[in-house]
């Protein structure tokens, strides 16, 4: 696959704490790539390394097939989580300054800025000082500054924080439009509901490690565990018998006031068609549907599993050293 940026075996150590430990990610071109993880997992450090703001202790970052250099930075647009603008500068001057820093000429920057200001309906802010804007307003300006030079790679760190739902939707629309125009987007967040709506692929970082990577569809499939919800007439006895025999995990269920019972069963590796036809034979099956986990579920499951393994490994070490 054609990757715009790959980071291989990245390790970054700060005094007394390892922010990234052998993390690798590959971002396919023209996609929206979600970089997920709990607070303090190392997302921002990884983004700063990709941005050439800081260097990794070991590992290599490749941009468009060559090792990342300072010159590639003009091909990257970065919206940091810690947002800010020069407070005393006027909105227009400020946008112009950053646009020219990214290598645009004054004329080119002016034309593009006017277009963007119109699109986000903020044209009358041009001569306002930033300190007079609200947080959300300033973020719109910052968004424009990030994307104005039409970089190949856009990096948004928590782009929706501070936005009301209406403006968040406008932003979402613009991000997807930029992708459709050919840009690659790295999108860092811990807001899972936006992941499904926007991302094509994700990487989940927890405690400095990459614990999950892949396309959104694949990951959902992997975490679904073939869970199905069945609704049928009568109680659950006959169905539990089948499930137990096949060794399947099944939730308890009691008939509702119409005499219908609803249970969730994880079919796992079992033959789905066979099981279902057996159910159908033994009960009066009214409905069944496949359940797909939300990304919230996946996130929580993946993170807690990885923490559990971590802790277990650490406990093991401690016991070992105690035994000595």
């Amino acid at each position: 696959m054609d990757n715009i940026i790959t980071a291989e075996h990245i390790t970054k150590q700060f005094t007394g704490h390892r922010a990234l430990d052998d993390v690798s990610v590959s971002v396919p071109r023209g996609k929206v790539y979600g970089l997920l993880g709990p607070n303090g997992a190392g997302k921002t450090t990884l983004i700063r390394i990709i941005n050439h703001i800081t260097a990794p202790d070991s590992g290599i970052v490749t941009f468009n097939g060559h090792p990342l250099t300072q010159n590639d930075v003009s091909n990257i647009g970065y919206l940091p989580e810690e947002r800010g603008l020069y407070k005393k500068m006027k909105v227009g001057d400020q946008a112009m300054f950053f646009a020219r820093l990214k290598g645009l000429s004054r004329q080119e920057a002016g034309a593009r800025l006017r277009e963007w200001f119109e699109r986000l309906e903020i044209s009358d802010w041009w001569d306002k000082k930033v300190e007079t804007l609200s947080k959300g307003m300033a973020q719109k300006v910052q968004f424009i500054v990030t994307v104005l030079h039409k970089p190949e790679l856009l990096i948004f760190d928590e782009p929706f924080s501070g936005f009301d739902p209406i403006n968040a939707n406008i932003l979402k629309r613009e991000i997807l439009r930029l992708r459709d125009e050919g840009a690659t987007v790295i999108f860092s967040t811990h807001n899972m509901s936006s992941v499904e709506a926007i991302c094509d692929d994700i990487t989940l970082i927890n405690r400095s490690h990459n614990i999950l990577s892949g396309s959104v569809a694949d990951i959902k499939e992997k975490f679904s565990n073939q869970a199905y919800r069945f609704t049928f007439d009568g109680n659950t006895d006959s169905i539990r018998e089948i499930a137990d025999r096949a060794g399947l995990i099944m939730t308890p269920g009691v008939p509702d006031r119409y005499g219908h019972s609803t249970v969730t069963i994880e079919l796992g590796n079992a033959d789905r068609r066979e099981i279902i036809s057996e159910f159908n034979n033994k009960t009066n099956l009214i409905a069944f549907e496949k359940l797909t986990p939300t990304f919230d579920d996946i996130f929580i499951r993946a993170v807690s599993e990885s923490n559990y393994h971590d802790d277990e490994a650490n406990n093991g070490k401690e016991e070992f050293s105690n035994g000595k």
């Binding site: 941005n51 703001i53 003009s74 990257i76 800010g84 820093l101």
Partner: peptide, 16 residues
């Protein structure tokens, strides 16, 4: 001032 107004990360992603 650039640090307190948090503009620095935007700046350093454009300027050495």
């Amino acid at each position: 001032e650039e640090k307190t107004s948090k503009v620095l990360e935007v700046v350093v992603s454009s300027v050495r």
